[in-house]
Amino acid sequence: MQIDLRTVSIKPLRHTFDNVARRIGADKPASRYQEGTLDMQQTANFHYRPTWAPEYDIYDASRTAIKMADWYAFKDPRQFYYGAYCLARAKQQETAEANFDFVENRGLAGTLPESVRDTVLKLLVPLRHVAWGSNMNNASVCAYSYGTGFSQPHIYHSMDQLGIAQYITRVGLLLGDVQTLDEGKRAWMEDDAWQGLRRFVEDSFVLQDPFELFVVQNVVLDGLLYPLVYETIIDDVLSSQGGTPVAMLTQFMTDWFTETKKWADATVKIAAAESAENKAILGKWLTDWRDRAAAALLPVARIALGDRTDEVMGEVVQQFNARMAKAGVAI
């Protein structure tokens, strides 16, 4: 029996789940982001301790030095639950696809000045491995952090970085060939220019504090690398030398950074606003790792910037400091 039910007007018994109502302060209709995020992680009565880390509960807030009265204070300003996330990325990948098609179909790769192509390949291809490292670090933060409000964006970030590694691979294949990838990996493993950065990345792999890892990877390293490589070197310096097609191929990364830094900033801001202790810890992490990252990126920047390297790097660090000051941590 099919009846027309649209004509029925009935009063709901409640408007959302109790846990959501408790958190938003009233029983009122809640967003999909809220219902899909708040209290998703289990919090009580775990049955067994991890055999791989018996000192902790399955989810354990004491894994980090950052203390929060409520870990659901962290909210993603993009309001990404899985569906919203995928829809946003699907749109961006469509643009990326159109850009790759445009460059490929018009043979624009062949029109690049030799020097620009060389620089791009030397600079960009080894960054596949940095993205791969970020993929792993973000998986780590997702796995070991506390509360879905904080952990959830990291799985999206992790998948994004895998996507970025694959986009860089495609740029390498378009401007070069499979050997270009091998050459990039060789440089990553052996060339002096890359060793500081590789050491930085490998050192991040053994960090145990998930919040520190978020700071090191997503705030500091990306916060210097993306403005330096994508916003400055590719979109600015190389474009003025006839490298605009490259900027089309890396548009995904530029757009991605603009979007994701809003979330990173909001997250730093919330943690810092919680307490003076948090703010001091964040200040120390940000300063120490910023100095290391800037030093590691310097020889990499020199591949494209030559004499201007120190000046540009100085500007990038200034910008970064200003960004953090706005988020509530003066460094």
């Binding site: 018994l13 409640r14 789940f17 109790d18 999909r32 899909g36 998703m40 899985y82 569906g83 999206y156």
Partner: peptide
Amino acid sequence: VDEIRHAQTQVHAVSNYNKYYNGMHDFH
């Protein structure tokens, strides 16, 4: 990432049932 999708789509699909029927209101 698929599994967080499953958790969320299930909550979203059941969300409307929770508005009209009992037993689901504090499932976490």
